[in-house]
Design a protein around this nucleic acid. Structure first.
Lengths: 147, 147
DNA sequence: TTCAGATGCTTCAGTAACTGAAACAACCAT
DNA sequence: ATGGTTGTTTCAGTTACTGAAGCATCTGAA
């Protein structure tokens, strides 16, 4: 009766796992903090920054944006509205299907997104404290977690 | 001589670093998603869940809560209001300084927080896919990043 | 061809998170 | 006591977000 269930992945996290979870939480918190701060430096909210970054890679219809951001389409409308009002994003209607509006980053929008990406110091500075070997180990562990 | 400068933090992120940054971004996204989902299962918002988790460790005055959550005290008022309305948190005035209100988790609040913590599957499940050695390497790399 | 249903976006309540200013009470040092 | 500081709340205003309509457009089948 020492171990009732046969090592289910859900029960009894060992100390090592717990510490890693704790550390990941810390990393998440700092990353977020840094991201919001970088966004604020460009007078953007976090949501606006995320959307703009997505559009910087490729134009996307509103519906896809909602899927990427994991929120309702009606929400995307507002965020795009505000970005459009500032000239960072444009709505183009898709000639192939006139229902869909494709959001596309303007030149200015792409510039802001690039600048934003560069001011994201976190995960660059702290990573610098790691040796090459440690970075490789980190990469492999993260890959393993996500795969 | 092998490394002239102790790895200048600002310039020229190499491919490895970039990939790690990318992976961390992915981990952050999944962690957040999971956290919000776990919170929603308990009819809590993310902010409420974070605050309740803090209080589960120790009672805190409003001001400290604001510092921990990195937001304005006036914001904390609202979040605690809503948690208090649901009996998960209580306000007690500090006898030593009658200005300060100490927020403390109720029994029910602690129970919810515990349950929340347990339903946080992410970073436990994917971690299970890692060998002990990999987990140690991950821990050390994360420690290095945060220290 | 036409029309009923599906799909994409917006609009409209309604809630929560958040900020910054202003009000208040209680503390503290002179 | 008095004046300045500090902890909390209140208030107005913005954004993010959801879910239910609503409108326009597309699509498939009769």
């Amino acid at each position: 009766m020492a171990s009732p269930t046969p090592t289910p992945p859900n029960n009894r996290p060992d100390a090592l796992t717990l510490e890693v979870v704790e550390l990941i939480g810390e990393v998440v918190a700092r990353f977020h903090e840094d991201y919001e701060e970088a966004a604020a430096e460009h007078t953007l909210t976090g949501a606006q920054a995320r959307l703009l970054s997505l559009l910087c890679l490729e134009p996307l219809p509103m519906r896809r944006l909602a899927q990427r951001l994991k929120c309702e389409p009606s929400n995307v409308t507002g965020i795009v509205d505000r970005l459009e009002a500032r000239g960072l994003v444009e709505r183009q209607s898709d000639p192939a299907d006139r229902r869909v509006k494709v959001a596309v980053a303007t030149e200015e929008g792409r510039r802001v997104a690039r600048s934003l990406r560069e001011s994201l110091r976190f995960a660059r500075e702290p990573l610098a404290g790691l040796s090459e070997g440690e970075r490789v180990a980190l990469r492999d562990a993260l890959r393993g977690m996500l795969g």
